[in-house]
Write a protein that binds this DNA or RNA. Structure first.
Lengths: 168, 168
DNA sequence: CGCACAACCTATCAAGCTAGTAGGAATAAC
DNA sequence: GTTATTCCTACTAGCTTGATAGGTTGTGCG
């Protein structure tokens, strides 16, 4: 039961993009974005630069760039190049779940020895193990597929009251 | 969400030890163990050799030996050297859970970037992530701490009917 | 057009897990 | 006591993941 650094970074980056900017800009108004008076606002919202994400969440910038490419190819992020470029959510934060992000960077949600949990191929006395992994997979999916980025953002503002705990 | 080969092998080895011998010896009676008429039966049951475990579950023998050392140090296995040596369960199969085995070889049950889920140290907009990992941890613990080796052995004989599914 | 900026891509390096090999230490049988 | 068998403990190669550096392509502005 191991969550890779890639998955953790991807979720933190997505949350930072959803929040807009540096990370604790909830109170500090500051300057928003120039947004060029030309007339092409980004479809998903405001554009956040990769360097800002790396600094806000303390993620190695070059490693983060590879993760952002995966998120864009999965259809979760929109990117824009150039001087005022950056990243924005492809969908509202209410419609992006934690499971979407995990699957975008990790392939399958749960893997056993590198393979998806469904195809394990046990034999002899270990036949029952497959059901255990499937049960674990279901329990994890129940949590991550029902938690959206918007949920996490609102939970972060409050003093951590209603954690989406399933059993204990 | 990644189950390492070490954890998978450890569970399969424990199941093979619990079953007694090669793996599908439920029907084939064959020769049991000589057990030397000297008068010291193994406390946990019958002794199974590491080579038999490796062949029955197709685990690299040398890699398996390192796993068996961990299981012995964790107090889950008893070992005996010599001509008729081998491994046996330190407790009945009904009192050993899947979680016990996973913790013996993997340290903590769930880790995020190598650290236990409890101490993650998020900041800014990612504060809510900690609750997600704790919820996942709880969901996994609910499954693996309530499934014993005896449950898996009896489930393997039946045609896979009552999987211990928690939610879906 | 030329310059600066930022996303994008490819190659390179370090670290941990997986896997295999060789030798030492303990136990039972002869 | 000798020998065979087995557990036990290093040490040594691939391989995947984490992390890094440099170069390329697209964009806005003067």
């Amino acid at each position: 039961m191991y969550v890779s650094a890639r998955s953790d970074y991807a979720l933190r980056a997505m949350l930072a993009v959803a929040a807009g900017t540096t990370g604790d800009a909830a109170t500090t108004g500051g300057d928003r974005k120039p947004a060029g008076a030309d007339g092409h606002p980004p479809p998903g919202g405001e554009l956040v630069k990769a360097a800002a994400l790396a600094e806000a969440q303390e993620i190695p910038l070059s490693f983060l760039q590879g993760i952002l490419v995966d998120l864009r190819r999965a259809g979760l992020l929109l990117s824009h190049r150039g001087t005022e470029g950056g990243y924005a959510l492809a969908r509202p934060a209410e419609e992006i779940t934690v499971g979407d992000v995990l699957r975008a960077v990790g392939g399958s949600l749960t893997t056993v020895r590198g393979l998806p949990a469904e195809r394990a191929g046990y034999q002899g006395v270990a036949t029952g193990l497959r059901d255990v992994w499937l049960a674990v997979h279901g329990a994890i999916a129940l949590v991550v597929d029902q938690t959206t980025l918007a949920d996490l953002l609102s939970a972060g503002q409050r003093p951590t009251a209603d954690a989406p705990l399933a059993g204990t």
